[in-house]
Design a protein around this nucleic acid. Structure first.
Lengths: 149, 149
DNA sequence: TCCAATTTAATTTTATACAATTTTATTGTA
DNA sequence: TACAATAAAATTGTATAAAATTAAATTGGA
C-alpha cells in the first residue's frame, strides 16, 4: 500500500483497535452501573477474583496499568468496601491488595456479564475466541519487542 | 465455557482489545512526540487530512468521540496553529474545522508513521489487514445493534 | 556497618473519555 | 410572529491513562 493510503483511518489496524475498545466499553457501562463499577474497576476485580492478595506492581503487570492509574482506583475500591490495602510486613515497599467479603461476593452479581456482552457483540463463540487469540498474540509480539529484559 | 471460566481475564476478548489499545498507543508515543502530538490528536489529523472543513459533529462520528473530548482537543490543535475553528455562517450552531497550511504540511512528517508502527507490531501486511477487517466487522456489528435509528 | 543503587508506591501534570447539563441557534407550527 | 421542540457545541464533573518526579524501604557491595 502507498503511504497516502496507509494514512487513511479505515486502513489502519491501530485505529480499529482503538475505536473498538471505546465502543465495547460503552456496552459495559449500563451493566456495570448496576454494580457501581467502571470498566477499569471491573477488570481490576476480575484480576483479583482470579488471584487475591497481590501487590500493586503485580496487579499492574496483569492489567498493563501503572501505579499512577491503580493507586487512585484502588483507593476508590477501598472506599467502596470492596478491597483492603495493606503494607507487606516483610517488605514495606509493597502494598498488598486483598478482596473483602463484600468484594468476593460481588463476583456472583458479575458472573452473567461476560455472556451478556458476547451476545451483544454478535460473534459466535468460535469467532470471539479466534479474535481474542489473535489479539493476545499481537499483545505478546508487542511485549517481546518492547521488554526484551 | 462455564461462567467462572468466562470471568477470567485471559479468556476475555474485551480485555484483549482493551490491553492492545493501550500497548499500541505506547508504541506511538515516541514517534508522535517528534510531531508534538498525542495519539488522539494524531487520529484527528488523519481524519482531517482525508476530509477537511468538517463540523465537530461529523468529526466525532468519524472518530467515535463526542464534543466533550473534541472541543478541548481542537482548541489545543488551534493553539498549535494546526487547525482553524470557525462557525458555519449558514448554520451558526456548527463549528467547522479546517486545516491550516501548517496542519496540512504536518502530513509529510507523519507519512512514515504507519509503516514504522506495523513493523513494530511484528505482523505481516496480510495478517494486519485480516485483523483490521475482523475488528472493523465487530465495530459494525456493535453499531448496528446500538444505533438501529 | 555504611551508603549508593535499586525498587515500589504515591504524587503531579497533562490529556483523554464520557455522562449530564447548559447555552445558543435553528426549525416547525399554531 | 411567537414559541415549543430540536440540534450542536460547550461546559462540568468524574474517571481513566501515562510520563515524570518524589518518597520510602530494601539490597548489595566496599
Amino acid at each position: 500500500m502507498k503511504q497516502d493510503e496507509l494514512l487513511k483511518l479505515d486502513n489502519q489496524l491501530c485505529f480499529a483497535v482503538y475505536a473498538c475498545t471505546r465502543e465495547i466499553t460503552k456496552l459495559y457501562t449500563p451493566l456495570l452501573k448496576e454494580l457501581g463499577l467502571t470498566y477499569t474497576q471491573y477488570v481490576t476485580l476480575l484480576a483479583l477474583w482470579e488471584k487475591d492478595r497481590v501487590s500493586v506492581k503485580e496487579l499492574g503487570q496483569r492489567l498493563y496499568l501503572d501505579s499512577g492509574t491503580l493507586t487512585p482506583l484502588l483507593k476508590k475500591l477501598e472506599s467502596q468496601g470492596l478491597v483492603a490495602r495493606t503494607r507487606d510486613s516483610r517488605d514495606e515497599r509493597n502494598v498488598l491488595i486483598s478482596l473483602t467479603d463484600e468484594g468476593r461476593k460481588l463476583k456472583e452479581k458479575a458472573c452473567g456479564i461476560p455472556m451478556a456482552i458476547v451476545r451483544q457483540l454478535g460473534l459466535s463463540a468460535e469467532e470471539a475466541e479466534k479474535l481474542r487469540d489473535d489479539l493476545a498474540d499481537l499483545l505478546n509480539k508487542i511485549q517481546l519487542r518492547h521488554q526484551p529484559t
